[in-house]
Nucleic acid binder design. Structure first.
Lengths: 203, 203
DNA sequence: TGCTTAAGCGGACCGCGGGTCCGTATAGTC
DNA sequence: GACTATACGGACCCGCGGTCCGCTTAAGCA
């Protein structure tokens, strides 16, 4: 056990910083207008505290994202239907995408911040590989679907934060419309190659 | 005619700057490592010239992108099969996506630069609306496909520069593999809802 | 409760990059 | 050759991410 337990004020400050960042991102029109100095000021701490606690801007955003995403991650990893592992794949794939879309809708600015933080792209932000691996596995459990690698990438791309943000901001779609359209798109894709097999498989 | 013709040296410098930027982006590992000062130096002009001629960094990248994309745009607007308007939609939609993918493969760093320049996202970069409108129209010409708005967004998201870059850089896919996978994905999507109608329509 | 000490704090400071400004140079015109 | 609008270019400014180090304080001990 190389890590000793941290001091109480450090823990308090860490929470304060995460809360402050969440508030500022939610309030701002664009995450790039939220500077590290802003977050420090909002949290009532010095800039040094931010960088000591999180390494750099990306680290802070990742940490914040992680805490918010955790519930969904657990629900997918060992939760009940329709997200959990016991769900038949034809039902689980759309459910995963819907959950992810809802998350991005509920945390638009945070997701936006995360995707533009990871050195210019969301790939390699850690959670991406997890989502991709999970979705890919589910797709490939669909009999007759074949290789799900690219399809998983493409489906995840369809719910990227900036696209979602664009559609919502331009009033091209409301929350429910978006969910319906994503579901429709997914269905169109999945009913292509294994349609007959699916009805026998899904409950 | 409010615009008077520009001075000869201005035209020369404009070309020099575009050429220099193209070279530097192609050479660099990441477009964000190419500074405006770098481009000015490579072109043999002062920084002021860059900003006078293109407004800001985004303007420069957009201008460069525009010139490179022009041939494809023309081919789609009034070229021969399979990109041109005379093509049946079931053939044209995959062709459009393939052309766009190839463009992003051939101009990876430029496309990457463009997508991260447009205030954090490719939406509103001008060309996006054109691609989306075109693709959407083609999809909706497919009998029985229904609303193509979201599907067009999703398909375009599947060929976003950073995703393409990610897949190529990680050696997850070669150029031809990627093209094949995109074609497969598109086919899977299109053969979902209008399969029987298509065979009667396509040549 | 007072002492010790190391973990933690915070804001002055740095380097870099986008964008501006203005004195200077020159293409175009008569 | 003279005159002017146009363009040039690099010194300069500013804001931001990230660092550094002298000061503060929580935690353990007697």
């Amino acid at each position: 056990m190389p890590d000793r337990k941290p001091r109480a004020d450090a823990v308090r400050n860490r929470e304060a910083v995460l809360a402050a960042a969440d508030r500022l991102f939610a309030r701002s029109d664009s995450p790039e207008h939220v500077s590290m100095a802003d977050i420090a000021a909002e949290a009532g701490v010095g800039k040094g505290t931010l960088f000591r606690g999180f390494g750099d801007r990306t680290g802070l955003i990742r940490a914040l994202h992680e805490t918010r995403l955790e519930p969904i991650r657990r629900a997918v990893a060992d939760g009940p239907r329709p997200l959990g592992p016991g769900t038949p794949p034809a039902e689980r794939a759309p459910a995963l995408l819907d959950a992810l879309l809802c998350f991005k809708l509920d945390h638009r600015h945070l997701s936006l911040a995360l995707e533009e933080a990871g050195s210019g792209s969301p790939y390699g932000a850690g959670h991406y590989d997890w989502w991709h691996g999970t979705l890919r596995g589910v797709l490939e459990d669909l009999p007759g679907f074949g290789d799900g690698n690219f399809a998983a990438h493409a489906l995840l791309a369809a719910v990227r934060a900036d696209l979602v943000d664009h559609l919502v901001d331009r009033h091209e779609a409301s929350r429910e419309q978006l969910r319906a359209e994503l579901a429709g798109f997914t269905a169109k894709l999945l009913t292509g190659s294994y349609q007959d097999l699916r009805t026998a498989h899904a409950g």
